[in-house]
Design a binder for these strands. Structure first.
Length: 316
DNA sequence: TAGGCCATCTGGTCCT
DNA sequence: AGGACCAGATGGCCTA
């Protein structure tokens, strides 16, 4: 790798006189122009090819076929080959990035302005597949704590918050208990964020901000799920949704409770609620109340959850 | 300023 | 010989 360093050093030196080349394509062509020759090739131009040197006792003689002398034509061929290889590699990486973008679009949450990093996209994709498999195989619902936990497993806190925000749920206490640091703040600005789709609390850095029209909540698109709780079939196939998103619900909004405390799934199917402008008013009141009541949210996380089990999205 | 993320260049390896 | 793929290095950009 020292060779590579020297190559880069050589190129950088050559490039240093071209300060204005900020544009990557410009820089790329400069690289291509200047880097047509590898370190070794470069050395060979002047007939200093190691392979052809006499053994001076300091360097062991290398095995293998002797290298051909670098003629001008050969140098040119190498240069052209290197330039072409660079272009192919760029194209290949662009293809890879396009594929990643496509993957991002089918993730449970998608934002043009707040793109998941590559690694987080892959992790979330894995979790999403896993979570949906669980839904199919074990008849779980694609909503709520369990589903969210599966989605967020192994994700960074910002990504977890993003997913939670998109699904309008906060990471739950049990989920949080996995983390050692419980002294960190609970940040209902996340809830505020969820309400307004702006990003004071959600994982803005390093990803930027979320805007409502950029958020694209993508519910799972499996065909039907038999919900054991209500023993009827829910049609979960949701058409692509491009319209404005409705403000999210609080947890209590998403999971309305019957009078006996059991979840009223007829009223609380998360994704369905998501596309409805109805049923929001109740939760709005709660969220707003919470926000005004606890302006800075410097509460230990378990305390906060006890106090506001239904209204907060807690950060790690 | 450090750290995360990214695009790009590069040389090595494998395959056709 | 040349293309695809890969991983290391590097520098730029952005944010805390």
């Amino acid at each position: 790798m020292s060779e590579m360093v020297s190559v880069h050093g050589w190129m950088e030196e050559a490039l240093s006189s071209q300060d204005e080349m900020k544009d990557s394509s410009q820089r790329q062509s400069a690289y291509d122009l200047l880097s047509g020759l590898s370190h070794e090739e470069h050395g060979s131009i002047d007939g200093e090819d190691d392979e052809e040197e006499e053994d001076d006792g300091e360097r062991p003689k290398k095995r293998g076929p002797k290298k051909k002398k670098m003629t001008k034509a050969r140098i040119e061929r190498f240069r052209v080959r290197r330039v072409k290889a660079n272009a192919r590699e760029r194209t290949r990486m662009h293809g890879l990035n396009d594929a990643l973008d496509n993957l991002r679009r089918v993730m449970p949450c998608y934002s043009k302005t707040q793109k998941l990093s590559k690694i987080e996209t892959l992790r979330l994709a894995r979790n999403y597949i896993w979570a949906l498999s669980e839904v199919l195989e074990q008849g779980q619902t694609a909503e709520g704590k369990g589903f969210l936990e599966m989605l967020c497993k192994g994700l960074s806190q910002p990504t977890s918050n993003l997913v939670a925000g998109c699904l309008q749920l906060g990471p739950q206490p049990m989920f949080m208990e996995k983390h050692e640091d419980k002294s960190s703040i609970c940040d209902p600005s996340l809830t505020s964020h969820a309400y307004t789709y702006q990003s004071p609390g959600l994982p803005s850095p390093p990803y930027g901000t979320i805007e409502a029209h950029h958020l694209h909540l993508k519910p799972p698109t499996f065909k039907t799920v038999v919900d054991p709780m209500v023993n009827h079939t829910i049609n979960c196939t949701t058409p692509p949704y491009d319209g404005a998103l409705t403000p999210p619900l609080s947890i209590s909004g998403n999971f309305s409770l019957k009078q006996d405390g059991s979840p009223d799934l007829d009223k609380s199917y998360a994704f369905r609620s998501h596309y409805s402008s109805l049923g929001l008013s109740g939760s709005h009141g709660h969220v707003s109340h919470f926000q005004t009541a606890v302006p800075r949210y410097e509460i230990p996380i378990d305390m906060a959850y006890e106090a506001y089990p239904h209204h907060a999205i807690f950060t790690e």
